[in-house]
Simulated assay, not measured.
Amino acid sequence: MATIVPPDHGSVNAEPPRAEPRIAGPAYAAEFAGDYDRWFGKPNISASTVDALDDLAALAGAGRPVLELGIGTGRIALPLRARGIDVHGIDGSPAMVRQLREKPGGTEVPVTLGDFSEVPVTGEFGVVYLAAGTFFELPDQEAQSRCFEKVVPRLAPGGLFVFDAHVPEQLAAHAQGAEVVSEGEDHLVLCYRRIDASAQRYRSHYVIHEAGSTRHLRVEFRYAAHGELDLMAGRAGLRLKERWGSWAGAPFTRDSAYHVSVYEHA
């Protein structure tokens, strides 16, 4: 059952998960929420994401609220709100929401605690969106299809459903070695991905070295190619409006590492 966390609510009490490269699962989120932005924040990606969503919100109808599935610490939501957009959110992690509440403007964002595949909110939104690969946090095709289905009644006339997703072939090609996620004088975060093509899943191993100690996290995701995503969207009553090769609007080509898909009512 979803729990509504009012904009001025300073504390939360519940459990649940999150996205790539977001540390998923209630235990991980509770332990590492305070370090999430420091380790995984990528200002250049976030800025282009905010620009694109700002444009889409205007396209879908100025003045309409927007909804972020997996709002987390508010890295996208708060800059959008600063531009005058009425942002609402859903997240499964109370610890992540607490980080959002501690930021300037964070107490003003309406957040629902719950499973975002169920889209447990009422009302209509000009844009429903996810960012940073959050859609693949949903554990199987059933949950991903349900998310499409539950989004549809939440879209206002002319509303859009938007999210980014890995291209599986590129994901596999770049899963051969460790990637430096974050480094500084006081820490080093490495990521190694292991692909299981037979199950359409990948596991991200995060090795975090800080203050003389090393921790290891394992996070699993269920990926889908864009053709499968379009099929799920179509069955839910949506159709592809646009697909880009980046949040900055680059063309989607055979060399794109990920895509941004924009769906509308069919």
Rank of each mutant, 00 (worst) to 15 (best):
F32I: 12
F125V: 02
E210R: 09
L231Y: 15
Y129Q: 02
G106E: 01
Y258M: 11
V219M: 12
D230P: 07
E108F: 05
K241G: 13
F32L: 14
W244A: 10
F116A: 08
G159A: 05
R18Y: 15
P104S: 02
H9P: 11
A156D: 01
A58C: 08
E185Y: 10
A178F: 14
L59V: 07
E118V: 09
R75M: 12
G123Q: 06
L100W: 00
E118L: 09
A52E: 12
Q176K: 15
Y206S: 01
M232R: 06
V109N: 05
D37T: 05
A30E: 11
A257C: 15
Q200E: 12
P157Y: 10
V151P: 03
V109G: 04
P104K: 02
R146A: 10
G61D: 00
L190K: 06
A2M: 12
I23C: 14
E142G: 13
A57I: 00
A257N: 13
L240K: 02
P157Q: 06
R75Q: 14
D54W: 14
G177A: 09
I4L: 14
P79I: 04
Q200H: 12
H166L: 14
H166R: 14
F161P: 04
P7Q: 04
D255Q: 07
D164A: 01
G25E: 00
A250H: 11
D8T: 13
M1T: 11
F135V: 03
V12I: 14
T3K: 14
A175W: 08
G237H: 01
V127R: 04
L67D: 03
S213F: 15
D164T: 01
G212D: 02
L100D: 01
T49E: 11
S246R: 00
G237A: 01
R194L: 10
P79S: 07
I71A: 06
E242N: 09
E179W: 13
I71G: 07
A14F: 10
R64V: 04
A27I: 10
D230C: 08
A52V: 07
T107D: 13
H265K: 14
I45M: 09
V111M: 06
V66C: 05
L56Y: 00
R203L: 08
A60F: 02
V5F: 13
R194G: 12
G92E: 03
